[in-house]
């Protein structure tokens, strides 16, 4: 996984915990990944697997306390985000890395017009005056496919539908031509047809603007459609990571395989979609000392309960964190 590609974002050994009243929550456990310019990395995992916390750690968007980034390096465009001053970090937020969140219904401020909210980053990061910012904001709304863009700048979020609000969020995230766009389950809260439209929009914008994207989802189907590479997260760890076709063709981790089985089959019947993996995701109250997937895993053997598997390469563009080797059908030789 450490290769010589040019990277825009390099995350190594990221560990984020929450110090809550009920004890520690080990939400992100030594996560490493990198992102090449213009690339689309998909991150997939069940709800609670630490996807959002990982992404918010990158820009220190978590409430601290209770959150604490305990360890790790976050190198963005050659700069160490963890060492940045508040001012530098603010410039990265919204200026160089755009963020889209899951729920468009609550992510916009209800008492300000969408025009105001799109113009804010333009004025802060690009130093545009009011007039220039308004012109650019109208362009952005048009870019994300909102009809009658100029007039709609004066409207408030509640005057837009969910899909349209997510388009507004995308316009805000892309306002300052970011190098990286982080989309945290941007379509989960939307209904299916709108989901497809937003997906199309992002594909189109990526072609036009060329930014790198991290796309978070719990839906492997979406990943298959747009991602270049995929990381599968479980219990705050990346358990498998591969080029997208490789992952679908040759899944290694029992969890990935289980996820693939929950996908609708060729006939696309709804019933299969609803099938989910049996068992509960683990409580994250302890740092992992063994394989966290073991209680739900059909291949678990004694080593799984003693040691936490580390990521090992199975091919140049594919690694997995599992003690079992699917190819040989035996414990891996590591």
């Amino acid at each position: 996984m450490l290769d010589a590609r040019a990277t825009i974002l390099d995350v190594a050994n990221l560990k984020t915990v929450f110090n809550t009243r009920d004890g520690m929550v080990h939400a992100v456990n030594h996560v490493s990944f990198s992102l090449a310019p213009g690339e689309l990395l998909g991150i997939v995992g069940e709800s609670g697997s630490g996807k959002s916390v990982t992404m918010m750690s990158l820009l220190k968007l978590l409430p601290m306390p209770p959150a604490e980034i305990e360890d790790g390096d976050i190198i963005f465009d050659g700069r160490d985000i963890r060492a940045m001053s508040d001012d530098e970090l603010r410039h990265v937020r919204g200026g160089e890395i755009g963020f889209i969140f899951q729920d468009p219904m609550t992510s916009l401020n209800p008492v300000f017009t969408v025009g105001f909210q799109i113009m804010e980053p333009l004025r802060v990061h690009m130093g545009l005056n009011k007039k220039a910012a308004r012109i650019r904001a109208a362009e952005l709304l048009e870019l994300v496919g909102i009809p009658d863009a100029g007039a709609r700048l004066k409207d408030y979020p509640h005057q837009f539908s969910g899909g349209m609000r997510q388009r507004v969020m995308i316009a805000i995230a892309l306002a300052c031509d970011p190098k990286v766009l982080i989309a945290d389950e941007p379509t989960t809260a939307l209904d299916v047809t709108i989901q497809a439209q937003i997906l199309e929009l992002i594909k189109e914008l990526r072609q036009k603007l060329g930014m790198a994207i991290i796309w978070i989802t719990h839906d492997l189907g979406v990943i298959a459609e747009i991602a270049d590479r995929v990381a599968v997260m479980y219990a705050g760890q990346i358990v498998e990571h591969a080029e997208v076709r490789e992952l679908f063709k040759n899944p290694q981790h029992p969890y990935t395989r289980a996820l693939l089985e929950t996908l609708p089959d060729m006939s696309g019947e709804r019933a299969t979609r609803l099938r989910s993996i049996e068992g509960q995701p683990p409580a994250l109250s302890k740092a992992p000392s063994h394989c966290e997937f073991a209680p739900r895993c059909g291949h678990a053997f004694d080593r799984c309960l003693k040691e936490n598997p580390q990521r090992r390469d199975v091919s140049p563009d594919h690694d997995v964190a599992c003690w079992w080797d699917v190819k040989t059908g035996e414990p891996a030789n590591v």
Binding site: M56, L59, L61, R90, H91, V92, R93, G94, G95, F99, F101, S107, L108, N109, E120, P121, V124, H125, M169, I172
Partner: peptide, 9 residues
């Protein structure tokens, strides 16, 4: 969170 992610003071 959105406001912070936009890089506002």
């Amino acid at each position: 969170r959105t406001a912070r992610a936009k890089g506002l003071k």
